[in-house]
Write a protein that binds this DNA or RNA. Structure first.
Length: 583
RNA sequence: GACCCGGUAGCUCAGCAGGAUAGAGCUGCGGCUUCCUAAGCCGUCGGUCGGGGGUUCGAAUCCCUUCCGGGUCGCCA
């Protein structure tokens, strides 16, 4: 009877069953107790810290306070009331310990619900919170003519992963690589190429050579201040459509993109649009005009600015020489996206250091009188550190992401040669492990924090790492491969066992975890969840033999394993990791 | 100087819409393989939750203050 209700609610709300149960208990208790005492009460239903205490827990201190009755009396009243609610059929036991009422569920009954829900669901973990909504994500967005460094890693994988997670929640996702293919730095490269560049050499090794030229420019500019002036002039002319510069621009952009695609292929990252800053070159005047019309633009020290109030600095829209700035192009991009993709949310996966820029961007939109400022989210993230310092260079050289990925793959291969030398497709698998290790190492850390990039730790591939997840999945796969798959009935009583139930409970929380991950735009939430699930399985594996004689027991275990593996694989996919079958 | 972010075990990090004895991984130490992949599992050592006040029955979590580290603050992106 209740199964039906719960399953319906699950489909509709996208919550896990355990969470649903919590919410219902909360609501029912508040209603019944409220009626009884004519008071508005807020009941907390949580999970006890220690599993031995029970499956659900209700601290009653606040009730004691509000109703001004002795604690033991309140405990009795709440217990009594708990027995009256419709869900009480799920309770196997209700205890109380020093102000906490602990409920132990009828685990077999609960397990049946979870298993049935899993079986009936086509893609477990999906929800409809994003149905009919579109989200644009601006991520990766490297600056052209520079190597794809470790610094671009975070934006790329956080953005990619969030895209996957949003799709899982039913959103339509538009992935945008807002290439930094414009601006003064770019003009510097053009100047250097024209003056000191060698066409043949650049053709051979384009990006590397272009970077050399850019560096050379900056070194010479230190001596000769007029060079910066020259670059600004070139940029201004490029903006006006100077043919030579435009042609050069196209060439450099093409070559750089080719280089980046190698990394994107390695990571499995794809975009719907590669429209970079330059794309908006002819779309900015409209913005400037509109700002003028709305009397928001003022001249200040020769530049055109929008005043944003006392708490933040004004936004610089136009330089003294009339050329545009970063925010001008971002405004143009924003309106273009709003008009073409009709987004419900616009996410910018960009580092912490640009916080002010996005605050200004939102404020300008508000000042212009648009209501979608609140749909703009800066998905900020911290630095990648090495030995506590920003990891952009190593021995003075920029750390290329490709090199890091190669290094990780190489280490994986060493490990395979040591552990499983006979493995087929070793190189391919080593690459999957290495790349995924780097990806996971990033995503397991909470976004906004800086994190330590520790190659040493990745050499070990042990503990809270990508390979740990892959290994767990592979282990399960291996068992499933060697088992006959004609499933019969399951013995739900087995789920009374702690190590069974813990896994099952986690499985039931998958949807919730994904939704929370979306709400906080924090893939680390999903990453930590997967580690927990993998860890629970590995403990189970050490304790229980799966392929036992008893058919029903065997099938029950196999089914638990299959659910676990499906979630691990799906979760890894959402994070942008690669799922492998053997290692 | 102003604003923002961080400070939890030797190291890397969870926990922070207040709740039970503060958790993981790594490292160290000690165990586990006649049996489904030991990249695993189990045990153990290790903490004034930066310091000091306050609110509360109860604070790592909320408020104030202070110290330390990082970021940002008009013609870069």
């Amino acid at each position: 009877m209740f199964c039906a209700t719960i399953l319906t609610v699950t489909r509709r709300g996208g919550d896990t069953m355990l969470n649903n149960l919590k919410l219902r208990i909360k609501k029912d208790l508040e209603e019944l107790l409220g009626k009884q005492f004519n008071a508005e009460l807020s009941i907390i239903v949580e999970e006890p810290k220690k599993a031995e205490l029970g499956d659900l827990s209700i601290p009653v201190f606040s009730v004691v306070k509000q109703l001004r009755k002795p604690l033991p009396q309140i405990v009795e009243i709440v217990k009594e009331t708990l027995n009256q609610i419709p869900d009480s059929g799920y309770f196997a036991k209700i205890d109380s310990v020093s102000g906490f009422i602990n409920i132990t569920l009828n685990r077999a009954m609960f397990a049946k619900l979870v298993v049935e829900d899993f079986n009936e669901s086509e893609d477990y973990g999906t929800s409809d919170i994003g149905a009919g909504k579109t989200v644009c994500i601006d991520y990766s967005s490297p600056n052209i003519a520079k190597p794809f460094s470790i610094g671009h890693l975070r934006s790329t994988i956080i953005g990619h992963s969030l895209g996957n997670i949003l799709e899982k929640c039913g959103y339509k996702v538009v992935r945008i690589n807002h290439l930094g293919d414009f601006g003064t730095p770019f003009a510097k490269t053009i100047y250097a190429y024209l003056h000191w560049g060698n066409e043949e050499v650049v053709k051979q090794n384009s990006v590397e050579e272009l970077v050399k030229l850019y560096v050379e420019f900056n070194e010479k500019a230190k001596q000769d201040k007029s060079l910066d002036e020259e670059a600004r002039k070139i940029f201004s002319e490029l903006e006006q459509g100077n043919e030579i510069y435009v042609k050069l621009w196209e060439y450099i952009r093409e070559e750089s993109l080719k280089d980046y695609m190698k990394v994107y292929d390695l990571l499995g990252v794809r975009f719907d649009s590669y429209n970079g800053e330059a794309f908006y070159n002819d779309k900015m005047q409209r913005i400037v005009d509109e700002l003028k019309e709305k009397k928001l633009l003022v001249k200040d020290q020769g530049a055109m600015i929008v005043d944003l109030g006392d708490d933040i600095p004004p936004a610089l829209i136009q330089k003294s020489d009339g050329s545009t700035l970063y925010i001008t192009r971002d405004l143009a991009a924003l309106f273009y996206r709003k008009n073409n993709y009709h987004f419900d949310e616009m996410l910018y996966v960009v580092g912490n250091e640009q916080k002010l820029h996005f605050t200004q961007l939102k404020r300008v939109i508000e000042k212009m009188g648009y209501d979608f400022a609140e749909d703009i989210h800066h998905i900020n993230f911290g630095l990648v550190l090495q030995d506590g310092k920003k990891m952009s260079t190593r021995k003075g050289k920029i750390v290329k992401l490709e090199d890091v990925l190669d290094e990780a793959s190489g280490m994986s291969l060493d490990y395979i040669n040591e552990k499983n030398p006979g493995l087929e497709d070793k190189e391919q698998i080593a690459e999957s492990i290495g790349v995924s290790a780097v990806v996971f190492n990033d995503l397991k850390n909470y976004r906004t924090n800086d994190f330590e990039f520790n190659l040493e730790e990745m050499v070990n591939f042990t503990g809270q790492t990508g390979p740990y997840l892959q290994y767990t999945s592979v282990r399960i796969q291996s068992i499933l491969d060697s088992a006959d798959s004609n499933e019969t009935t399951l013995n739900y009583d087995l789920f009374e066992g702690e190590h069974y139930f813990e896994i099952l409970k986690n499985i039931s929380q998958y949807v919730d975890t994904i939704i929370k991950t979306k709400q906080e735009y924090a893939p680390s939430i999903l990453a930590k969840y997967l580690l927990k699930l993998a860890s629970l399985f590995n403990s189970f594996y050490a304790k229980e033999r799966v392929l036992v004689e008893d058919e029903i027991e065997r099938n029950t275990k196999l089914h638990l394993l299959k659910m676990t593996k499906d979630i691990l694989n799906d979760g890894m996919r959402l994070l942008g990791m690669q799922v492998i079958l053997k290692m």
